[in-house]
């Protein structure tokens, strides 16, 4: 029983650690691609937490085997959820990466602080002019 408790603590603690580390990359790092990597790490943590919640010690994988003695099985619902979440996650990450590529072409940088400065710059200031010189034009606001 003690062993079971420590497995649960390890899994939940690992999932929470992944979420916190990924969140650190999102809020404290400045490069946009590093932010997206942080989002990927958060996704990994959430997926681990869901699958760990459906785990049952001593149970078999949720695949029926006519020859085997029918014992308890782990919960298949979190696994199905996580399966779709993984594929959705990579599609959304790819969308974010195309946006990052587009931003880099438009503004020439992926540093979030520099991007905030450029976007908030009043028209006619040096930053705004430098952006227009890069052939911006799509920037209307």
């Amino acid at each position: 029983m003690n062993e079971l408790l420590s497995i649960g603590n390890l899994l939940y603690g690992g999932a929470a650690g992944l979420i916190v580390i990924g969140l650190f990359a999102v809020v404290a790092r400045r490069h946009l691609i590093r932010v997206l990597l942080g989002v990927a790490v958060i996704e990994a943590g959430v997926n681990l937490m869901l699958v760990a919640a459906g785990f049952r010690p001593g149970a078999a994988a949720p695949i029926f085997d006519p020859q085997a003695i029918s014992g308890p099985m782990v919960d298949p619902i979190p696994q199905a959820l996580v399966l779709t979440a993984i594929v959705i996650g990579v599609a959304v990450l790819a969308l974010g990466l195309t946006l990052a590529i587009r931003i880099h072409r438009q503004y020439g940088t992926l540093d979030t602080v520099a991007l905030t400065r450029i976007v908030n710059a009043p028209a006619g200031s040096p930053e705004s002019r430098a952006m227009m010189q890069r052939g911006g034009g799509g920037h209307e606001s």
């Binding site: 899994l11 594929v87 790819a94």
Partner: peptide, 26 residues
């Protein structure tokens, strides 16, 4: 954790495809 389906998806998509996407974007 007895989730072979999820393991296959994570290995194919998370470890393969996502890495390729990030490297291409870089």
């Amino acid at each position: 954790l007895r989730a072979p389906d999820v393991a296959m998806a994570e290995a194919a998509v998370g470890a393969g495809l996502a890495g390729v996407l990030f490297a291409l974007a870089l």
